[in-house]
Computed example of a mutant assay.
Amino acid sequence: MTASSRHAMRHKLAIQLDPELSRQDGLTLLNMFIALVIVVGIVLAVLQTEPMVVTGNEHWFRYSELIFGSIFLLEYLARVWTCVENSKVKSRWHYIFSFVAIADLLAVTVAFSVYLGNGGILLRLLLLIRVLRLARLGRFSMAMDCIIEAVRSRGYELLVSAIFAAALLLMSSTLLYLVEGPHQPEA
Score class of each variant (00 low, 15 high):
residue 60 W to K: 12
residue 68 F to S: 05
residue 48 Q to D: 13
residue 56 G to T: 12
residue 61 F to W: 09
residue 48 Q to N: 10
residue 73 L to S: 08
residue 69 G to A: 04
residue 75 E to M: 07
residue 61 F to H: 09
residue 49 T to R: 09
residue 67 I to H: 01
residue 67 I to Y: 01
residue 66 L to C: 03
residue 47 L to V: 12
residue 51 P to H: 13
residue 67 I to C: 01
residue 52 M to Q: 15
residue 49 T to C: 08
residue 58 E to H: 10
residue 59 H to T: 14
residue 73 L to C: 09
residue 53 V to T: 14
residue 60 W to T: 10
residue 62 R to P: 03
residue 51 P to N: 11
residue 43 V to C: 10
residue 65 E to P: 01
residue 56 G to K: 13
residue 58 E to K: 08
residue 61 F to M: 10
residue 47 L to I: 10
residue 45 A to N: 05
residue 60 W to Q: 12
residue 46 V to H: 06
residue 64 S to H: 04
residue 76 Y to A: 01
residue 50 E to P: 02
residue 69 G to E: 00
residue 68 F to T: 05
residue 58 E to W: 04
residue 74 L to W: 05
residue 69 G to M: 00
residue 55 T to G: 11
residue 67 I to A: 05
residue 59 H to R: 14
residue 44 L to R: 11
residue 51 P to T: 15
residue 44 L to F: 14
residue 68 F to C: 06
residue 74 L to T: 07
residue 64 S to P: 03
residue 58 E to M: 08
residue 57 N to W: 14
residue 46 V to D: 08
residue 71 I to F: 03
residue 48 Q to E: 12
residue 50 E to V: 15
residue 72 F to S: 02
residue 76 Y to I: 00
residue 54 V to C: 13
residue 64 S to I: 03
residue 66 L to S: 01
residue 55 T to L: 14
residue 56 G to W: 09
residue 73 L to E: 02
residue 51 P to E: 13
residue 71 I to M: 06
residue 61 F to K: 07
residue 65 E to K: 06
residue 58 E to P: 03
residue 67 I to V: 12
residue 65 E to L: 07
residue 46 V to T: 07
residue 58 E to I: 09
residue 51 P to V: 14
residue 71 I to E: 02
residue 58 E to Y: 03
residue 71 I to P: 02
residue 77 L to F: 01
residue 43 V to A: 12
residue 62 R to F: 11
residue 66 L to A: 08
residue 63 Y to C: 08
residue 59 H to W: 14
residue 77 L to C: 06
residue 45 A to M: 05
residue 61 F to G: 07
residue 75 E to L: 06
residue 59 H to E: 13
residue 71 I to W: 03
residue 62 R to H: 10
residue 65 E to M: 08
residue 62 R to C: 07
residue 60 W to L: 14
residue 55 T to Y: 15
residue 49 T to S: 07
residue 60 W to I: 11
residue 61 F to Y: 13
residue 50 E to I: 15
residue 49 T to L: 10
residue 57 N to K: 13
residue 44 L to I: 11
residue 52 M to N: 15
residue 69 G to T: 00
residue 72 F to W: 06
residue 58 E to D: 15
residue 50 E to Q: 13
residue 66 L to D: 01
residue 47 L to D: 07
residue 53 V to Q: 06
residue 75 E to K: 05
residue 75 E to D: 13
residue 46 V to L: 11
residue 77 L to Y: 00
residue 54 V to R: 12
residue 72 F to V: 02
